[in-house]
């Protein structure tokens, strides 16, 4: 890989790329993290990434580039093969079972398709984390659930089953469940996948608003560049398991980096090739 993270983005964004790391208030830090299920195929190799407290940071890249792996590392579902994953200064890999559960309690994660519990009503879905982790009396839980539902504009759906919701509504209910216990950090795994333009911008605005209103720190894994540019503070580009570019919104928009340009403009060929590596046609047909 020719580009190192600091030289990846030219112009105004290169100074911005230093800013979050230098701010010293980093809540989440990935330091030289590598991960692979097998030795031959590395999914992440030497990723450095910083998320400052209170910010909304996007991690972008094509499908299968290892974005989701970063989220799973943060949740402690998998452990890095080398490097450090630090959340509030603690290494996720070094946690024992108790610490891991305590760690997960300050974490919220919105899954790609919501992952609502299909055998429960919307109300019970959002009450689930409260029932599991608190001893709150039933009427307080009820008020809390309705507040969370109200925050995503779906108080009227409390008694419905997830199967009765549209994709966009299900995503918002899942968002309400994710913030049910007011997590410090929220991880979004492709929150925009499969949504129509209206739902998409509704979810996007909710993510931004919740982040600011509840003082959360958010990491958004997505490949939807247009929506992300509207809401996030900072963007990391990942390709083939490495950070290939980073910068704030203005920097990314102005960037002349070929990878960023290809991604932002959605061009079929560029640094990411249209063809999967194969011998030349002439060779294949001879």
């Amino acid at each position: 890989m020719v580009m190192s993270p600091s030289t990846a983005v030219d112009g105004p964004s290169s100074s911005a790329s230093i800013a979050p790391a230098a701010s010293g208030d980093a809540l989440v830090t990935l330091r030289d993290v590598s991960f692979g299920y097998t030795r031959e195929r590395q999914i992440l190799s030497g990723v450095n990434l910083t998320v400052p407290r209170g910010k909304l940071v996007a991690v972008m890249g094509g499908s299968g580039c290892g974005k989701t792996t970063i989220l799973r590392l943060l949740c402690g579902q998998i452990r890095a093969s080398s490097g450090e994953v630090l959340v509030a200064g603690e290494s996720v890999a070094a946690m024992n079972r108790e610490q891991m559960y305590a760690h997960r309690r300050r974490l919220g994660m919105l899954f790609q398709f919501g992952a609502l519990f299909t055998d429960m009503t919307v109300f019970d879905n959002i009450a689930f984390p409260m029932h599991e982790h608190t001893d709150l009396p039933e009427d307080i839980i009820r008020d809390l659930v309705l507040m969370k539902l109200n925050a995503v504009g779906l108080r009227g759906t409390a008694e419905l089953k997830p199967s009765e919701l549209s994709g966009g509504m299900a995503r918002r209910v899942a968002l309400a469940r994710t913030i049910a216990l007011d997590p410090q950090i929220v991880l979004y795994d492709e929150p925009f996948a499969g949504l129509d333009p209206i739902s998409l911008s509704v979810v996007g605005q909710l993510i931004r608003r919740l982040n600011d209103a509840l003082g959360m720190t958010s990491i958004l894994v997505t490949h939807d560049i247009a929506e992300s540019l509207k809401i996030v503070d900072y963007i990391y580009f990942i390709s083939e398991g490495r950070v290939v570019a980073q910068g704030d919104v203005a920097g990314i928009r102005a960037s002349t980096d070929p990878f960023v340009r290809q991604f932002v403009d959605g061009e079929p060929d560029g640094p990411v090739h249209f063809h999967y590596p194969a011998p030349a046609l002439a060779e294949a047909f001879s």
Partner: peptide, 25 residues
């Protein structure tokens, strides 16, 4: 089918991330 579907739709993973052990729950 029920457990397999919960796994497929990431409901089990969601529980795990909510610090709820899906084996127990």
């Amino acid at each position: 089918a029920e457990i397999g579907l919960m796994k497929t739709t990431e409901q089990l993973a969601a529980m795990e991330v909510m610090a709820v052990d899906p084996i127990a729950r």
